[in-house]
Design a protein around this nucleic acid. Structure first.
Length: 564
RNA sequence: UGGGGCGUCGUCAAGCGGUAAGACACAGGUUUUUGGUGCCUGCAUUCGGAGGUUCGAAUCCUCCCGCCCCAGCCA
């Protein structure tokens, strides 16, 4: 809880709230809400909204509710409610006892509708959906009033009750607000506020067969909960006049202020729920929590920390300009967090066998390794060294280019925490010519990694003792799409055409140092020189180690290579 | 051609009439037993454009241009 006087107003919404608090609007109280529809999983765009709403409340001594906007039973499911609650909690936010559902207010909404009908501000329409569309007019032409617009209050009441009592099939009637068919704002052209839906609701079961539309539920829900600032995304800006109209016509005591901000877009991914659902149902992804998904559960499984996501949401800011944030910023926030907290280990993803010819057969040397150079408190561990090791295939080149510092024939390098070794011979497969083994010598004087004579090497390689290493599966993830904005469709292609065929590479013959055998599901770590990884939340067991690559380390060598 | 918004560095984003913050990215340098990290340096004479007001304009006015959203009985 922060003292409002010391709050740094970090965006235009906070500025509005700050001014309202200082002017003692709403008695100086602040109440916000995060209002997801349970029709899909939360993604990082929602995280922006969650952080905004909870932080706004937190910064101004207020509270933030979690409210499910569950007015459309045909699209909503309990599974989504469960996942949403889990994700919000995981992100680090707490709605305490303020878990609400729009469906809890169905009775009240019904009363509100009655009130409108009695005021002559709502009517039951017999027009079909197509007819309503035709009567609505176009962007440039005004709409026409429905012939049923002036039914008597009594007839409206009778019909609406009939709708409620299930006397009519879906689509037979709708209840519409009587606003203005000539408005330039389409939302004001007598919007439908109740439709007949003989569908079972995940919470109210079959109690209702009429359901309110978003516009007739959202603002009223806000009002009922005493929300002071109703934060939503830009596409609802056109709905604000309607939002205000309902609250005014219903003469509700609490009139929340709707404020809109631009939703988050990220490069190389998509954020639309409709598209995300397709990735899942059409089998492009292995579920909503596939580590390539921008969903909260996907990012979590990928190895992201809640702290890094919150930091990201802080840094991107809040404004009204439609924008696309470079995913590199998200990755930067991630690396910054992981660098401080991830313990380091050695893991060889694509093993190349190295035999140290002058190392005694059967000897094992337990070397000291630092767990996290950024955190002395993380301590040290022992790493076994022996005659036969694995190094990374990428760390050897038979004919090294100018700037390649790693191992090559005749060259000396350091094995991290181990010894200096020199490559004296290369063994190749007779048929394919592929390098299958390196013969090296080591310098016993360099134990730990320093030469007493002060001689330097240009590279330090990670390695794992063949005899002691553990076999592991490693899943290498990269950007889901090859195109910066897969959804722009300007090339006439469906967004699925831009899925990165290499977004997942599974390596099942990796060799990792013994201490990694202790990793618990979801535990994060760094594989030195490679990246940050986590033990897969579901698949990693003692018997079968499975690691997900969360993000690579910044790799200046890779960039150099790419340039040339 | 209706209504509602938005245009400040490659990408986000401060700025609110007194002479363009910051972050990411990028480019150099430095440190380093991770080509990681850290540290240092550089990176908008200019704010979509054109006029105008003013001693002074990204900030005020006018016109123009561009982009986004809206014609679900979705949210």
């Amino acid at each position: 809880m922060t003292n409002p006087d010391t709050v740094t107003v970090s965006n235009f919404i906070a500025a509005i709230v700050d001014a309202d608090v200082k002017a003692n609007k709403n008695g100086g109280k602040v109440m916000t809400r995060f209002p997801p529809e349970p029709n899909g999983y939360l993604h990082i765009g929602h995280a922006k909204s969650i952080c905004l709403n909870f932080d706004l409340a937190g910064d101004f001594n207020g509270l933030c509710n979690l409210r499910f906007d569950d007015t459309n039973p045909v699209k909503e499911e309990q599974e989504y409610i469960d996942s949403i609650m889990e994700d919000v909690k995981w992100l680090g936010f707490d709605w305490e006892d303020r878990l609400y559902f729009s469906s809890d207010y169905f009775e009240k909404f019904y009363e509100f509708a009655l009130r409108l009908i009695r005021k002559g501000k709502a009517y039951v329409d017999s027009l079909s959906a197509e007819e309503i569309r035709e009567y609505r007019g176009t962007l440039t032409e005004p709409g026409k009033e429905s012939p049923y617009r002036n039914r008597s209050v009594e007839e409206n009441l009778t019909l609406f009750e009939g709708m409620k009592n299930g006397e009519f099939p879906d689509g037979q009637y709708v209840l519409r607000a009587k606003v203005d068919m000539a408005s330039g704002n389409l939302n004001m052209r007598d919007p439908v506020i109740y439709r007949i839906l003989h569908a079972s609701h995940h919470r109210t079961g079959d109690a209702w067969c009429i359901y309110p539309m978003y516009d007739f539920a959202h603002g009223q829900s806000d009002s009922i909960e005493g929300i002071t600032h109703s934060i939503c995304t830009l596409e609802f800006e056109d709905h604000r006049p309607l939002y205000d109209w309902f609250i005014d016509e219903l003469e509700l005591a609490c009139h929340p202020q709707q404020i809109e901000f631009a939703r988050l877009n990220l490069t190389y991914t998509i954020m639309s729920k409709r598209k995300l659902v397709r990735l899942v149902t059409e089998g492009y992804m292995n579920g909503w929590d596939d580590p390539r998904m921008p969903t909260i559960s996907g990012l979590r499984r990928r190895g992201f920390t809640p702290e890094s996501i919150r930091d990201f949401c802080d840094r991107i800011g809040v404004a009204k300009k439609a924008s696309t944030v470079d995913v590199a910023l998200l990755e930067h926030c991630l690396r910054e967090d992981l660098n401080k907290r991830a313990n380091r280990f050695m893991a060889v993803l694509k093993p190349l066998k190295v035999v140290i010819e002058n190392y005694p057969e059967g000897d094992v040397d337990l070397l000291d390794a630092v767990n996290n150079p950024e955190d002395p408190g993380a301590g040290t561990r022992k790493v076994p060294f022996s005659k036969v090791l694995y190094i990374e295939q990428d760390d050897f080149m038979e004919e090294p280019p100018k700037k390649f510092f790693r191992l090559a024939p005749g060259r000396e390098v350091r094995l991290r925490y181990g010894y200096f070794i020199t490559c004296i011979d290369v063994v190749k497969d007779k048929d394919t010519g592929e390098v299958i083994e390196l013969r090296c010598t080591y310098d016993p004087e360099t134990r730990g990694g320093n030469a007493p004579d002060g001689r330097k090497v240009k590279a330090t390689l990670h390695w794992v003792s063949a005899e002691h290493g553990l076999q592991a599966e490693v899943r290498l993830y990269s950007h889901l799409f090859v195109k910066e904005n897969p959804a722009d469709g300007k090339d006439g292609e469906d967004f699925t055409a831009h899925i990165n065929p290499d977004s997942l590479e599974i390596l099942d013959n990796c060799c990792v140092e013994p201490s990694l055998g202790e990793m618990k599901p979801e535990e994060i770590c760094q594989f030195e020189r490679l990246g940050y990884f986590c033990a897969d939340r579901y698949d990693c067991t003692k018997e079968k180690l499975v690691f997900n690559r969360t993000v690579t380390l910044r790799d200046t060598w890779a960039r150099l290579k790419k340039k040339s």
